[in-house]
Each structure stands twice: as structure tokens, then as C-alpha cells.
């Protein structure tokens, strides 16, 4: 267990170091950082001072070290476009993305399990077959088209829901939340459906496949023979045994939800980190791009590590093979 853990931790750190190197090279070699930070009316003295201030006069490897040290402390430099520390801008945008991801994840999990169970238990019914076909089409649709379709139906045609923004938000400490106002909650509906739909179909198909497998087992037949209620068999005996793979897959999908939020946030002009990243690319705001890259890598690597640990805890076969993983 310890060996396995240390090895996986080492791998994760290596990945983060490589991502850090990419981010550092972006910052250092894409364009001239001094040119980007100082305005048109600069003197040579300004340039020299800035060069020393940023440490650009030192050896490349030392610069990389300093970059990493600052990054660990949360110092990603100053945004070229907004002239404020990147970490401040990111912290301001993070609640919007996290709330959106949380709601979409919960929606995807809930409806994924409900539809998955339904299509497995009533697998020959017309509704179940329709759901399966719809999910096949849904998987091959681009996310942004789904978002646009929802906007045009519910915001433009029916005028029921807002087409962009977060609505009113309430500030609690450093965290702005849309959960506490009516307009904030309404604004969440369309974006979270758009973002959660793909994950929902994935979870649904997984639950269905696992349920079909479990429902054929002897202990289910035995439960029927004991005269247990259908509800109790489906939920207590069958569903419970499908949950381990569902939880791990959902965990792995959490990273994708945050990454795909880039698309959803752009469609709905949702003021989160994804929209910030897209704008940063459009305006070549390298410090923001680099910081977002490192942040999202940290999220991905952490989630992968946790899921691997979970597998290890759940599946004893991995332990026997000496933790080769």
C-alpha cells in the first residue's frame, strides 16, 4: 500500500512539474514579458529594472525554480489585460465555475442513476428504448449546440429563463453565491443542464450495463424467491452493488465537468474561470493561461490520484500483485 501510494504520488508530482515547465515556457518565451507589462512610453531604465524585478537576468533553471516556488505560494504574476494579480482574478471567478460544476454533477448523477435503473429494469418498454436512442444521439452532439438550442427554445421563444449571466449573487466572505437568490437559481438551470447532459448519458449507460449484469445474478433470484418487495430488491440488492464503479467514474468525470465548463460558460456568458480562460486565449493573456493550466492540472491529477487510491481500497486483487498498479 505504502509503496503503491508513494509511486503514484511521485508520478503525479512529475506530471505537475512537466505542466509547470510548459506554463513557465509559455510565460518566458511566448512574446516578451517586459514588452507585455510595460506600456508604450518606457525608458531603458524601466526595462532594466523590470528585468531584474522579474528575475529575467538569471539562469533559465533558476528562473524555473523561482517560478515554481511562486506558483506553489499562489503567485502567478499579473494579468496582462486586467493589470491585477492573476490569483485574485481566478479567486473571484472560481465560485461561479464550482457552483455550476457542483449542480451539473449532482443533476447528472441523480438523473443518470434514475434513467439507468429504469432502462435496465424495464428494458423492453417503449420509453426505455426511446431514452437509449436519445442518449446515443445526445452523445454525438456538440455541447455548444445543445446550449444554443436550449437558449433559443427557453430564453428566446418561450421567454421563461435567462439566456446569460449568473443573476443576482450574494457575497459571503470571499465567496459569491447564486444559490441564495431566485434569479441566481433560475440562471443556473440552463447552463447546468447543458454541462451535465453528456455526463448524465455516460452515467446512465454505465448504471444500465451494471444493473443488467447484477440482475442476472443468483442472489437476486434468491431475493425474489424469499418474497422480498420489488422495490427493496432493485434498490437494496441491485443498485447498491452497482455503485462502486458509478462513484469512481463520476469522480473521474468531475475533472471533465470543470474543463467542459469552458464551453458552457462561453455559451451562457457565465462569469467563471472557463470564460476567463477563453478570453485570455483571445487576448493572449499568458499569465492567466498559464495559471489556469496549472490549476486545472492540479485538479485532474488530484482526482486521478484519489480514484486510484479508491480502486486500491475497494479491489483487493490490486494488493496481491505487489502494488504494481
Amino acid at each position: 500500500m505504502i509503496v503503491f501510494f508513494i509511486r503514484r504520488l511521485g508520478q503525479s508530482l512529475l506530471v505537475l512539474l512537466i505542466v509547470g515547465l510548459v506554463a513557465f515556457s509559455m510565460f518566458r518565451f511566448v512574446g516578451d514579458p517586459i514588452n507585455n507589462m510595460l506600456g508604450q512610453e518606457r525608458t531603458q531604465a524601466d526595462v532594466d529594472r523590470m528585468r531584474v524585478e522579474l528575475g529575467l537576468d538569471r539562469a533559465i533553471l533558476t528562473q524555473y525554480g523561482i517560478f515554481l516556488k511562486k506558483a506553489v505560494q499562489g503567485d502567478f504574476g499579473v494579468s496582462y489585460r486586467q493589470g491585477r494579480p492573476v490569483i485574485e482574478v481566478l479567486a473571484e471567478r472560481a465560485p461561479a465555475t464550482l457552483e455550476l460544476a457542483l449542480v451539473s454533477g449532482a443533476l447528472a448523477l441523480f438523473f443518470g442513476i434514475v434513467f439507468g435503473m429504469y432502462t435496465a429494469i424495464k428494458r423492453d418498454s417503449f420509453i426505455a428504448k426511446s431514452i437509449m436512442t436519445a442518449s446515443l444521439i445526445g452523445v454525438s452532439l456538440p455541447t455548444f449546440l445543445i446550449g444554443i438550442a436550449l437558449i433559443n427554445i427557453f430564453a428566446v421563444k418561450l421567454e421563461l429563463l435567462p439566456s446569460f449571466g449568473r443573476g443576482e449573487t450574494v457575497k459571503i466572505g470571499g465567496w459569491t453565491t447564486g444559490f441564495l437568490t431566485r434569479s441566481g437559481l433560475i440562471a443556473l438551470i440552463l447552463p447546468s443542464i447543458t454541462l451535465g447532459l453528456y455526463q448524465m448519458t455516460l452515467i446512465m449507460r454505465l448504471v444500465r450495463a451494471e444493473m443488467l449484469e447484477v440482475l442476472r445474478q443468483d442472489y437476486i433470484r434468491f431475493a425474489w424467491a424469499r418474497g422480498l418487495k420489488e422495490r427493496s430488491i432493485n434498490f437494496n440488492h441491485a443498485l447498491r452493488n452497482t455503485l462502486v464503479p458509478v462513484i469512481t467514474v463520476t469522480g473521474l468525470q468531475l475533472g471533465s465537468i470543470i474543463a467542459f465548463a469552458i464551453i458552457t460558460e462561453t455559451v451562457f456568458q457565465w462569469p467563471g474561470m472557463g470564460l476567463l480562460f477563453v478570453n485570455a486565449i483571445q487576448f493572449v493573456d499568458i499569465p492567466v493561461m498559464a495559471a489556469y493550466l496549472m490549476l486545472i492540472s492540479l485538479v485532474f491529477v488530484t482526482i486521478n490520484l484519489l480514484v486510484d487510491m479508491l480502486y486500491f481500497a475497494v479491489d483487493p486483487r490490486l494488493r496481491v500483485s505487489g502494488g504494481k498498479g
Partner: peptide
């Protein structure tokens, strides 16, 4: 481990 779209965006940027 990273979504393809993110990598493509980064290269583009």
C-alpha cells in the same frame, strides 16, 4: 488525462 479540447485550445493560444 486532459481533455483533448483543452490541449487544442492551449496550443492555439
Amino acid at each position: 488525462t486532459f481533455p483533448a479540447i483543452l490541449i487544442a485550445m492551449l496550443i492555439f493560444g
